[in-house]
């Protein structure tokens, strides 16, 4: 089936997210705008206006009631998904690089950048779900400054009060939000910047992508590398397919060097790798710039990729994809 091309952004995409049901697709970009789309036909439902800088990151809660976004205008905003109104704004000294909801939607974690004399910080906010949602605590419940290489990505683990972070040096770590202590780490998880981190459904493992051209699956508890997927291009995003044993990888030559290379060398393709056998099973072309972010429909029926080229491409899988058994009938647990 032809992919649906979502042309609602004027600059490169930074993150895209499906809601829990998968009917909506949220996308944010460097053009300050957050868009929401119907995932089945690509119709735009609306925008969330209010940020005055590149929007680096978004996340939606499991009820599709609230959405949070972090931006280069140094703010974290809470939005009402249904009407596009900004419910609350938190302001920080530096840009917000990553946000994530907790499992039970009660908390949000955010990473602010280390810049202009300010240390990088990780803050956790309680989100009140009472009333219209405008009454939110101004102060974070927890805040700490991780020491060493700065954090680039984060997510809640399945254990309460523990978050997973990926760092610029390639390190993966577990932090206790109450104390700010590093509970566990894997210094050599990657050899370069960790660019994306996406959790499995039950949050017991996660996939990371890195500029070191590899993506890896890690055990949430021990941070052990379970699987490695080595490609020949720097990776910007990695996503897990929920019902099929695949991981989706996207990346490409750095934006800087793209102009000096043709598209065929850029490798701007979404790669499908078998999660267990660590073998590439297929590629999907389309973008003419590096892929910055990939998200898979929670039911596994489609996926979307957002590129440096400013487009989001939504691909609905065809029957053949579901029927195909490239490795025979093997039962692989999710």
């Amino acid at each position: 089936m032809r992919p649906i091309l979502l042309q609602g952004h004027e600059r490169s995409l930074t993150q895209i997210k499906f809601n829990a049901e998968g009917d909506l697709l949220f996308s944010c970009s460097k053009d300050h705008i957050i868009n929401v789309w119907f995932s089945h036909n690509g119709e735009r439902l609306g925008t969330y206006d209010g940020h005055n800088g590149a929007v680096w990151t978004i996340d939606v809660d499991s009820e599709s009631k609230y959405m949070v976004s972090g931006s280069a205008d140094n703010t974290l905003k809470l939005w009402s998904v249904a009407n596009g109104k900004c419910l609350h704004t938190w302001e920080f000294p530096t840009a917000v690089k990553r946000v994530a909801f907790s499992d039970d939607d009660s908390q949000v974690v955010c990473i602010t950048e280390q810049r202009m004399g300010h240390q990088g910080a990780i803050r956790v906010f309680n989100i009140s779900r009472e009333g219209d949602g405008k009454a939110q605590e101004e102060e974070p419940v927890h805040m700490f400054n991780p020491i060493g290489s700065k954090a680039t990505v984060c997510a809640f683990s399945y254990q309460p009060g523990i978050i997973i972070t990926g760092h610029e040096s390639g390190k993966i770590a577990l932090f206790d939000v109450k104390t700010g202590d590093e509970v566990n780490n894997n210094e050599r998880a990657h050899n370069d910047v960790v660019t994306d981190l996406q959790m499995s459904n039950d949050r017991t493992y996660f996939v990371t992508s890195s500029k070191d051209k590899a993506a890896r699956i890690h055990d949430t508890k021990t941070l052990m590398v379970i699987k490695t997927f080595s490609t020949e291009t720097p990776l910007n995003s990695a996503a897990l397919s929920p019902d099929r044993p695949y991981v989706l990888l996207g990346g490409g030559q750095d934006a800087m060097s793209v102009t000096t290379t043709s598209t065929r060398q850029g490798k701007f393709e979404t790669r499908f790798w078998h999660k267990v056998f660590e073998e590439e099973v297929g590629r999907v072309k389309g973008h003419f710039g590096p892929i910055n972010t990939i998200a898979v429909h929670p039911a596994g029926s489609s996926y979307a990729s957002g590129g440096e080229d400013g487009f989001v491409r939504v691909h609905h899988f065809e029957d053949g994809y579901f029927k195909a058994r490239p490795y025979g009938d093997v039962k692989i647990e999710q």
């Binding site: 039950d202 017991t204 055990d219 949430t220 379970i226 039962k331 692989i332 647990e333």
Partner: peptide, 8 residues
């Protein structure tokens, strides 16, 4: 993989 998953 399956053994690891069920342990998890």
């Amino acid at each position: 993989w399956n053994a690891w998953r069920s342990r998890c």
